[in-house]
Design a protein around this nucleic acid. Structure first.
Lengths: 148, 148
DNA sequence: CATTGAATGTTAGAGATCTAACTGTTAGGG
DNA sequence: CCCTAACAGTTAGATCTCTAACATTCAATG
């Protein structure tokens, strides 16, 4: 769900609109795996960032540390992740996706790429380049989505 | 939260990135009102579409009818909405935002517009027009966000 | 060392959301 | 009329998510 109920008015209203289409596709894909949106995000993040600690996961997923705790408990119960402490620091728990966990979300990136291609289909190569340049100019000034 | 953990790679990765910034701002605004994301969306929708029935709300909010039922119960308990049947059809329950409900989300559209302006700040007027044209070309082919 | 403070996670309890099964209502043939 | 099927919404039970308070572990300081 999203905040586009003001209607797709204005340039960034269009961005919201496109984002909705992307989001819907991604959510549907994840739900077929029996995962919530957040669980899917975290599991995918762990595949690409093995050994992250929960504090970092909370940051990138924009949820409270307590929520990450519960969320990981759910994933651990299903044996999609493992947690263990390393290097003699008993505070930090390193989190890893299990093979089963990695397998469950494998193909997500490809699915997203395929949807993106469909969305971009109306544009020529030149137009895509122009769009890319404009968006880059915007995102250059945007705060980084925290990514250690 | 979102699905951008593939990294902001590719043109539409940038769109996801911008969408995240918009979304974060909107969520923060809504949370200060003590509403969840979904509750904020539905309440805002009801202000603009008074008398909607729950089935339609489920459609536009992309949630299950049962979830809408619980969600509206929460809003009703806080007296932000009302439900009543009309026209002798006992099945359909028409939903209305109360004045308190409407007041609670008043100003949301303005807040969103202000954030959008900040995000677009790096672009000149010509560039904004070019971006607008490109995005329009894309959204023209996109499925309508269901809006009766 | 002992103390203090910061960093990291967890638990508890409330509320929200999902799926599946259920109740009640309307409409359309036989 | 009745019967059936579609429609609208709710309830039940499990899981998830949030806030607030709490434990535990490390690190710095005297």
């Amino acid at each position: 769900m999203s905040e586009e109920w003001t209607g797709p008015g204005g340039t960034l209203g269009l961005v919201r609109w496109i984002g909705l289409a992307q989001r819907k596709a991604a959510e549907d894909w994840i739900r077929t795996r029996g995962l919530s949106h957040e669980q899917g995000f975290v599991l995918g993040y762990l595949v690409q960032n093995p050994g992250s600690i929960q504090r970092d996961i909370a940051q990138v997923s924009r949820t409270a540390p307590a929520s990450v705790s519960s969320l990981l408990q759910g994933l651990e119960r299903r044996e999609l992740i493992e947690r263990r402490t390393e290097n003699g620091d008993e505070r930090r728990k390193r989190v890893y996706a299990t093979p089963a966990g990695a397998e469950l979300v494998a193909g997500f990136a490809d699915a997203v790429a395929a949807v993106d291609e469909t969305i971009l289909e109306p544009l020529t190569a030149d137009e895509r380049a122009a769009l890319d340049a404009l968006l880059l100019k915007i995102t250059a000034k945007l705060p980084q989505p925290t990514r250690p």
